[in-house]
Design a protein around this nucleic acid. Structure first.
Lengths: 317, 317
DNA sequence: TTCAAGACTGCAAACAGTTGCACTAAACCT
DNA sequence: AGGTTTAGTGCAACTGTTTGCAGTCTTGAA
């Protein structure tokens, strides 16, 4: 049923090793033989069995990608880009979802270990210790977390946050709220310290909040009471929720208050008003991560973020 | 470096076949030996090599999932559910993206063939002939396309479309536009025939349109000129674009015109007004597809759609 | 003409598991 | 007590490829 290298060898009158070489080291075999083998293989519909190949070479030509939540709009562009980069080099991509559970993370890497040449971990939640353990099993690169000894891809949220607050300042806002994220979050801290550095702006931190639409919605009253005219939200979902919450309180965006989000997810682009936001280079990060993995280089790279000005920001009243 | 079955055998004083059996057929080995082997394996950090196992058994415990566009908000919930179902049975999931190119579809299935036990194809664009060819290589199940001889999972859009139009009729709308999708689309046809069957409603078809926000935006003028009070859009993206387009023309939703979408994607839930829409059971479809694959049953199942009433529909003026 | 150097190709041993078969010892039956 | 079943384990062949080594045949140079 399934056609193997032996079938091809028999049908083209050469030894299996020759067939093997026409696929994995073409230059070692005579041009005439090569084309013969190739045509026979084509006729028979032969395709090398990657699993068998992996057994001897130790390289599977597979990569793993682990994210917290596939359905979170933040990740799909990253997954897509990672897939494209992998495919370009003839790698296949396992995708897995931890459902936000740190424990699952470690388990998945373990499970992948023999089947992939490397895995990319997005914003892993596991402890450093756990990650070190994993590093012994599989090469990996980490996105969005600082980790010494591992290749890491960082997106410079701090820079983006600064741009956002500067944008608000430029429009004339002098009192700005930071509707922050979850308590322990590295990103949240990053954003805060950057935002605080912008001169001529009084920054009021409101939070911690859940990193969701609900979180933003719930923060609306506190934003109103704080008397700010501009807001930087932890992410786009929070921003969207906040805008809705403000609407319910009779405040409209951007007339009464300006809101800028972070991430640049699709729902933000489609929102009304269209969300001004800090674009995270998720696609670039996905691409870069697999490139790092394939080339087995170990570097730490920081990707630029940029501000996308749309309709949710304006000069204060 | 990497610990094999032989290492475990040596360390626990049994033959490799015994170790093998403690993992793949535990009931065949004495309880005492089993626990000894297990603890030794644990100590050594042994994990069976799936690739090697696949070589002899022919079963890889891997599945492939092919979608048109990972970043299209329609797919992520499906991918997530498929992944969860696979993981539950200890399967791993390759995810691939055709970038809407039919040719890539076939190529990907070919490439997966030796590495998976089956693949699920979402709304494949390939010809029937091509799909038949592929069926010889790998078992697969198809989502959202009728295909005899293959296991298929259908979502009953027709039913949903009828519900949507009935909902509009119930609100008092007598003249309704169908802002349709691309020309050849099976879904588009399905929607149309179902929508036409609703009594007491005059249905005006506007299209074909691109299945995107732009497509909806561009159709706004024609919708206004048609004099309808209600609209069923090909999908949520079209609906969102349309709402924006109508807004630019001075018409507001739902006061001046009611709009209902199809799909129930995240951006629709976050949109303002919140989109009334036909919820497609994408998660259920993803789950079911992998279940069908794993059990190797061949059935064709149709999943119920339902109407989610939110804020973009109201009684006509 | 002879010899060395290439260019190809074949041989066979891995790779990490699984599994049909044979074997041993204990348990069961009459 | 003797024969039969059964549980548990070992043996070895096999899965589809790769690859170091060795052999054959040309070809070029001296």
């Amino acid at each position: 049923m399934t056609v193997t290298i032996r079938d091809v060898a028999r049908a083209s009158g050469v030894h299996v090793s020759t067939v093997s070489r026409t696929f994995s080291a073409p230059h070692m075999v005579n041009a005439a033989t090569r084309t013969r083998v190739l045509t026979v293989a084509e006729e028979l519909g032969y395709r090398p069995n990657r699993a068998a190949r992996a057994l001897t070479t130790g390289r599977t030509h597979n990569l793993g990608l682990i994210v917290a939540d596939i359905a979170n709009p933040f990740f799909p562009p990253l997954i897509k880009a990672a897939h494209a980069a992998a495919r370009q080099r003839d790698y296949h991509l396992f995708v897995a979802d931890t459902d936000e559970e740190p424990a699952v993370e470690e388990e998945l890497v373990q499970a992948f270990s023999k089947q992939v040449d490397g895995v990319v971990l997005c914003s892993p939640r596991s402890s450093n210790k756990a990650l070190e353990r994993l590093a012994e099993r599989v090469p990996f690169v980490v996105i969005n977390r600082r980790l010494r000894g591992a290749a890491t891809v960082l997106m410079d949220v701090g820079h983006g946050a600064r741009l956002a607050v500067e944008h608000l300042a430029g429009l004339g806002h002098r009192k700005v709220a930071l509707v922050s994220g979850p308590a322990g979050s590295w990103t949240s801290a990053e954003i805060r310290t950057a935002a605080e550095q912008v001169p001529d702006v009084e920054l009021i931190v409101i939070g911690p909040n859940a990193p969701t639409e609900r979180g933003g919605f719930a923060a609306a009253a506190r934003v109103r009471d704080s008397g700010v005219t501009g807001v930087l939200a932890y992410n786009d979902l929070v921003a969207i929720g906040l805008i809705e919450g403000l609407g319910d309180l009779g405040l409209s965006v951007p007339q009464d208050v300006s809101v800028v989000g972070i991430d640049d997810i699709v729902p933000g682009r489609l929102n009304r008003p269209k969300l001004t936001t800090v674009a995270m280079p998720t696609a670039a990060a996905g691409r870069l991560a697999v490139d790092l993995l394939i080339q087995e280089v170990s570097a730490t790279t920081s990707l630029e973020t940029r501000l996308v000005i749309r309709d949710s920001t304006a000069a204060p009243r």
